[in-house]
Design a protein around this nucleic acid. Structure first.
Length: 833
DNA sequence: AGCACGCCGACT
DNA sequence: GTCGGCGTGCTC
């Protein structure tokens, strides 16, 4: 069944003549978000609603509207009795009969546009059906009328003839019949002059279907012999179907019974079997027929705390701190409890692996219909998933970032798992954060928000301190973690304190090549390997050397597109830019002075792996970094997991493999990258990264050692990490943020302007700062502080110079509409580079 | 996308 | 003065 929603209507003249007194009731104007890229900020446009649409038009519906000389589609976001502008044009047509976005998600879109300073249309696209524009189909018909005063060219006449002949054609079909020029230039003009009618419809694709055979009962009282007689093959087929009792896919059936297609056809023709189409929806995990074995609630205390939160009005935000399985148990209990009330849940995970694991785990433990949105790969599947969420067929959607926009209408609960994970922030416009969207969505929908983590972000934990959310510790081991989180450093509580060693690399003696491994780390590494243990070494950069410098003239290999040195990758014999991925051949002689001696400065994972191999010749060393193929990565993870490899040297990339990399020793080769940069977000980043790395050696069933090498052992990040105290880190970090009036006390937006000419970028940044100040000077008591302009940390990237402004203050949203074309806005950024 | 408008330099 | 190229902003 193809879903075609459409309505035929005639093109309206440019300015409507319809008399207001003829109005049949309903609002006169529609506020529309137009699908035009350059519309500034959250601007909308008002169109008069022709009488014939008044009854049907509602917010969330798609319409065709005139926009300049074009006809564009748009989404109605509101209805009004009056228009803020004098002259309005008419809504040309409705696209589909029903709304594609409900009012709650329209409000969410408005908030997104305001909070992140993106065009409203971009925000609307997030909450609309996936790849909306691709499902719009435009067809043209001849009206039979037209403005006879307009002279028709030969091309126009040909176009009309073709349309009259075929009745209804798409633009592509017209193009193939009359040629590209005649079609593209002619069509718009012919529509404008009233000769041709344009009609847009919304047609969603259907996912691929599988033919399923269902056995039907025999006619009343008849025996198999009487029914089938000598039709043995038919009987065999029917008996097989009766035996299995569930629908069987046609190919499977034919394989099992080895009958030809004609046998099945005869059986169906006689009414003894039926063919059903089952849509292939790989993302639906279990229906009401699922096992529904609810998980045992092992942590009664946490669950009863959570239940009391769930009962509150208005609903609360809760931060659940605990190990993964303990969090998952609480999530499942909460989801099941909402499901019992007929309410739906969204679970957002930072990566697809966790989404798959959790959705399968949950589906086996609830009688609810659970969908994993990361498994909906094709366009058709994604649309089908969207529609089944909207129609109420689903109870739970589990997925990565975009799952937060699942169009549920009976939403009861939103869960953001591992809320501190950087993957919850969208890397492109609009740079939304799942937790912030979830906070707003749950506020609008009046439902509960549950954030789960082992180590919360500063902003998230701050909310529990100010009473905006409640902290619930989950799992066994609560007293110890209670001390970490609330009472600051309590060394007697943590029996594993001595398992974290901080090595000051300014003083420590080194072992082996390049001086990257301290003597202390080497000793523990050696004893770990000798005892058949496993060690993970973390290095924050891939490659061999950060810089390649000529010993004679000091020439530094630099990226031609960025203001950054090229990193040496000796294994693949290339120089790579880590900003833009530019690649060049490794050189062995200086390209400027032809000297043969090159000096290497800094190191990456390749160099560390080399150093370890040199120090421990008998150890098996494998690497994990993004230079390797997926195949090689999996092989390396597997050999480390099975104990074939002793030492794993990995970059950030290895964190994706999480628990597969359990080890007895974690060595952080250099822990302080970023702490010396002028970026107040760096300490939080480093601390969260260390805590996450530590999970490789510490967990429910392991208690390994951690050795951290640093040049700033006195930094509060390393002090707090060594003492295992979140509270200690949090206090120091908040002191810093409070003294400078930074987030989470005030909002922060990073604005970046890119231009091929350095001076032009700087000039634009200055001009924009002035414009902001002019706007701000008009209102007293506005809390907005502007820092900059300053060049970005990496000043030139991909042949463009970047200049930044930092906007800080409670009222930063007021100046966001000033930034346009060429500016990139990042609200609540994760770094300042 | 396509048009209006304003700025600036070149030319009448 | 006026013409036109170009960059910028607007389209209900």
């Amino acid at each position: 069944m193809s879903q075609i929603v459409s309505l035929w209507l005639h093109h309206s003249p440019r300015f409507g003549f319809a008399c207001k007194s003829l109005s049949t009731g309903g609002p006169a104007y529609a506020e529309v978000v137009v699908a035009a890229g350059n519309v500034r900020g959250d601007q909308t446009f008002h169109y008069r609603i022709p009488d014939e649409f008044r009854r049907d038009l509602c917010p969330g519906q798609m319409v065709l509207v005139p926009f300049g000389s074009r006809q564009l589609y748009g989404v109605v976001v509101g209805l009004a009795e009056d228009s803020p502008v004098d002259e309005t044009r008419d809504v040309l047509d409705l696209i589909g009969k029903s709304r594609v976005i409900d009012s709650e998600h329209l409000r969410l879109a408005r908030w997104l546009a305001q909070h992140y300073g993106c065009p409203l249309f971009t925000a609307v696209e997030l909450v609309a059906p996936p790849s909306l524009a691709r499902h719009l189909h435009t067809v043209y018909t001849a009206t039979g009328g037209g403005d006879k005063t307009n002279l028709l060219t030969g091309n126009d006449r040909r176009l009309l003839t073709v349309l009259l002949e075929h009745g209804e054609l798409s633009a592509a079909e017209i193009q193939s019949k009359v040629g590209k020029t005649a079609a593209t230039r002619g069509l718009d003009r012919m529509v404008g002059a009233g000769y041709v009618n344009r009609h847009v419809s919304l047609r969603f694709p259907e996912p691929a279907a599988e033919r399923m055979v269902v056995g039907m009962p025999l006619p009343d009282g008849e025996s198999t012999n009487a029914v089938f007689g000598r039709a043995h093959k038919q009987q065999e087929l029917w008996e097989y179907l009766a035996g299995v009792g569930v629908p069987v896919a046609v190919p499977d059936l034919m394989r099992s019974v080895s009958a030809s297609g004609s046998v099945l056809r005869n059986l169906v023709d006689r009414g003894l079997a039926r063919i059903d189409h089952r849509w292939l929806l790989p993302y639906i995990l279990a229906g009401p027929l699922g096992l529904g074995l609810r998980p045992q609630i092992e942590d009664d205390e946490a669950w009863s705390l959570l239940q009391s939160s769930m009962g509150r009005t208005p609903p609360e935000t809760v931060l659940v701190q605990g190990e993964e399985l303990d969090r998952w148990r609480l999530y499942a209990s909460a989801i099941n409890s909402e499901g019992d009330k007929g309410r739906q849940s969204i679970v957002v995970t930072p990566d697809a692996t966790t989404a798959i694991d959790f959705s399968e785990w949950l589906a086996a433990r609830s009688g609810l219909v659970v969908a994993d949105s990361t498994k909906a790969r094709t366009d058709a599947q994604r649309v089908a998933l969207w529609r089944s969420a909207r129609s109420g067929e689903l109870d739970v959607v589990v997925g990565t970032r975009p799952a937060i926009f699942a169009p549920f209408t009976r939403l009861g609960l939103v869960i953001v798992d591992r809320e501190e994970d950087r993957a919850h922030k969208n890397p492109s416009e609009p740079r939304y954060h799942v937790s912030s969207c979830a906070k707003e969505l749950t506020r609008i929908s009046r439902c509960m928000l549950l954030l789960g983590t082992e180590t919360p972000r500063v902003a998230t934990f701050y909310a529990t301190e100010t009473g905006q959310s409640r902290l619930i510790l989950a799992g066994s081991d609560k007293p110890r973690r209670g001390a970490w989180f609330r009472e600051g450093c309590r060394e007697d509580v943590d029996r594993r304190l001595d398992r974290v060693v901080v090595v000051d690399t300014r003083r420590a003696s080194t072992a082996g090549r390049y001086g990257v491994i301290s003597r202390q780390l080497y000793m523990v590494l050696r004893s770990t390997v000798e005892a058949n243990g496993r060690a993970v070494l973390y290095v924050n950069r891939r490659g061999s050397a950060a810089l390649t410098i000529c010993r004679d003239c000091g020439y530094v290999a630099q990226c031609p597109r960025c203001s950054r040195g090229l990193v040496q990758h000796r294994q693949i014999q290339q120089l790579i830019c880590h900003i833009c991925n530019w690649r060049g051949d490794l050189w062995h002689r200086c390209p400027t002075c032809d000297a043969g001696e090159l000096r290497l400065w800094g190191y990456g994972s390749e160099a560390v792996a080399e150093a370890v191999t040199h120090l421990l010749p008998r150890a098996r060393v494998v690497g994990i970094d993004s230079d390797r193929s997926v195949h090689e990565l999996e092989a390396n993870v597997a050999s480390f997991g099975s104990g074939d490899a002793d030492v794993l040297v990995g970059t950030q990339r290895m964190l994706r493999f999480g628990s597969l990399l359990r080890a007895d020793l974690l060595g952080v080769v250099q822990a302080d990258i970023g702490l010396q940069f002028p970026d107040f977000l760096a300490p939080e980043r480093v601390f969260l990264n260390l805590m996450r790395l530590q999970r490789l050696v510490r967990g429910p069933n392991c208690d390994g050692r951690t050795i951290v090498q640093t040049v700033m052992p006195e930094h509060y990040v390393l002090d707090a990490f060594q003492k295992g105290s979140y509270a200690r880190f949090f206090r120091a970090e908040m002191d810093q943020r409070r003294s400078e009036g930074l987030p989470p006390l005030r909002s922060l937006v990073k604005a970046t302007f890119a231009h091929a000419e350095d001076s032009r970028a700087e000039e634009e940044a200055r001009r924009t700062r002035l414009e902001c100040e002019t706007v701000l000077s008009a209102n007293a008591d506005v809390d907005v502080e502007i820092l900059g302009p300053a060049p970005a940390f990496v000043r030139r990237q991909r042949q463009k110079y970047l200049w930044q402004l930092l906007l800080i203050g409670a009222d930063v949203r007021r100046v966001l509409p000033i930034f346009h074309r060429g500016w990139t806005l990042d609200a609540d950024p994760q770094d300042l580079t």
